[in-house]
Simulated scan of single mutants.
Amino acid sequence: MDLKLEVVVLPVSDVDRAKAFYVRAGFRPDVDYAAGDDYRVVHLTPPGSQCSILFGTGVTTAVPGSTRGLHLVVQDIEAAHAELVDRGIEMGGIFHDAGGVFHRGTEEGRVDGAHPERASYSFFATFSDPDGNEWVVQEVTTRLPGR
């Protein structure tokens, strides 16, 4: 059985502001559908991704900005970081975790710069949308066995 993650719902407070942000970040707009003032769905896809994001009016009861730790995987974190900055996205610096291949989702254990061995899965940069939904950009150049 295949289980494919295809859509992640993000809670936002201003649909037009969120849409403009994600389009500026390079996400492809797929759908912008409204059925009156109480229901609007905006669906966008990150470049190269099979999974999309969805937000709007009347689509979730989650608190705007409460989503954390969504990962965007890239082949070259420096190039991705530079491109997002060039697109006007405020990025945190590139970092790795002092203890190994993943990060803790907090500031604890963060070390500035790329992993010294440049190990796949080992370094990151973060950004947030205008509501504070947090994204992690992660470099993965070689998949671990079974991935």
Results as ranks from 00 to 15, higher is better:
V15R: 08
E6Q: 15
F95D: 01
E134R: 15
P46A: 05
F127D: 03
G36F: 10
G113V: 12
V23K: 04
A80E: 08
D14C: 08
P64C: 10
T57C: 04
P64H: 02
H96K: 14
H43S: 14
H71R: 15
D86M: 10
H96F: 10
H103W: 12
T60W: 10
H81I: 12
H96T: 11
R40Y: 10
L84E: 06
F55V: 05
K19F: 03
L5G: 10
G26Q: 11
I89P: 02
H96S: 06
R28A: 06
S128Y: 00
I94N: 00
L72E: 05
V63E: 11
D86Q: 14
G92I: 04
V137Q: 07
G92M: 01
N133P: 07
H71Q: 15
P11K: 03
R118W: 12
T106A: 06
P47K: 15
F55P: 05
F102G: 05
L70P: 05
V41T: 14
A18E: 02
S13W: 06
H96Y: 11
K4S: 08
A20S: 09
R118H: 13
G132W: 00
V137G: 03
V140F: 01
L72P: 05
V136K: 10
V140H: 00
Q138Y: 13
T106E: 03
A25P: 00
G146V: 11
D38V: 11
V42A: 08
D14P: 05
P29T: 06
L72F: 06
T142F: 05
G56M: 05
I89K: 03
S13Q: 13
E117V: 04
S128F: 01
H96N: 13
P29V: 11
L70W: 06
G69P: 13
A18N: 04
S128I: 01
G99P: 01
